[in-house]
Amino acid sequence: MSAPPAALSTRAVRAALPVAVLLLGALVLVSLAVGGFPPARIWAGLWQHDELGANVLWNLRLPRLLVAMLVGAALSASGLVMQAFFRNNLASPDLLGVASGGAAGAVIAIGAGWASASLLVLPVCAVLGSLMATGAVLLLARRGTGTERLLLAGVALNALLGAVTSYVLSNSAISYEANARVIFWLLGGLEDRTWEHVEMIAPVLVAAALLWPLGRPMDLLSLGAAEAQSLGVEVRTLRRRMLALATVMTALTTAVAGSVGFVGLVVPHLLRLLVGPEHRRLVPLALVGGAVFVLGCDLLARIAGITHVGIVTSLVGGPFFLWLLRRQR
């Protein structure tokens, strides 16, 4: 697993972030305009000249768009952090089971009926589930972080957590309605996301701000923990922070959108190929790039009439990742 020399020139590398931001801006405009509702009325709605247009814009399209962007940013940044943490290109929240942990926590919360008690219950349970999964990966992968061991730990955890979810679904004590909610939620997606969901995932912005200054020490850590420590990095504190941020960000995405696959693997990987491995550059780019990727996939999903964005991210991300792997050899 090695990245070829940076595919872009120094100037292009420097332009990468502005380009990504512009791309995101363009996608935002297109996402707001495109749909079964006339763009002219959305425009009128922006100025409150059209009541229905305003409703579609403010209560349907905008929350969905914000959730899509935050989910993408969070998953992509989590993947980046986990790859630096485990010094492994293949580490990502979905492959390691951290996303499944969040899903299991959320499914239990919905299945047991706790989720209806408060808006906070679902994200809190998702975070707890993810934290447990992260802890398990750490224990299993403690001796070295060889790819094989790490991925085997992920496979085992994904299977275990999948079984937990299936058990909740198959449990006859759960009402039909709760069951339907679990299934709808499990498939993930951005359909009908409301401002409540935006609030639920908004802490991702705080996590992103906390992640920002860790870029430089992450460079050193990604080449070896002992070396980083001898060069002056407070390794224990850094690793604890990185893991906490990645876990919480992943968990929040599962709480609002179920499991959205491949973002955490594909986006950081692609960005590293384009601009090189320096994290001071990669952290902001991963946040923006992840938002671009999920928003773009959601746009495709809406145009193609696919209800769950996770289907599109995997359909786009899977082949793309295989192509990247092939190209590297």
Binding site: S2, A3, P4, A6, R87, N89, L223, P277
Partner: peptide, 8 residues
């Protein structure tokens, strides 16, 4: 040392 990432 094994370097996983392609720093220059």
């Amino acid at each position: 040392a094994h370097f996983e990432f392609g720093f220059t």
